[in-house]
Amino acid sequence: MPNELKKIMLIDDNEIDLKINARIITLTKLFEEIIICQSGEESLDYLNKHMDNPEKLPNFILLDIQMPEMDGFDYLDHYKQLPATFTGSCPVAMLSSTLDFGDIKKAEANVYVVKLLKKPLMPMELAELINKKAP
C-alpha cells in the first residue's frame, strides 16, 4: 500500500450510504482519513479552501452520480477546472447504484474517472482499484 494514499473524500447526498461507506473504508484500513461531503458544492468549497494546503487535500475521491442539483457528472465539469497539479494526483471513482448503460459508458469515457463502482461498495473492488491506480 503506497504511503501517499492517506485521505479519501466521499461525496454522496445519502447520509446512510455515507455512513456505510465510511465504515467499510475504516474497517479495510485503506485510508487514514475520510473527508465526508454531502454534496458536490461542499466538496468544491473544501478543495478550493485548501488548495494551497496539500496535507488537507484528498488523494482519492468516491463520487456518487445521482445527487440533487449538482449531480456527479456536473461535479466533474467543475472538478476539471481545478489546478492540474491536484487533479493529476487525485483519481476519482464514481460510485452508484445505476444499472444504466448510458451512465456507465459516460462515466468510463471521462478522463478523470478511473472506474464506475457499483453500490454496494465492495472492499475488494476498492482495494484492487487503489492498488492498480496508485500514483
Binding site: D17, N21, I24, L27, S97, L99, K119, P120, L121
Partner: peptide, 21 residues
C-alpha cells in the same frame, strides 16, 4: 425501479458491513 434500488443497495451494504464486523 431506480428509486427502489437505491435504498435496497444500502441495505445490502449494511449486510456486508455486518459480515465484515
Amino acid at each position: 425501479s431506480h428509486e427502489l434500488r437505491a435504498p435496497l443497495v444500502s441495505v445490502i451494504g449494511i449486510v456486508n458491513l455486518v459480515k465484515m464486523e
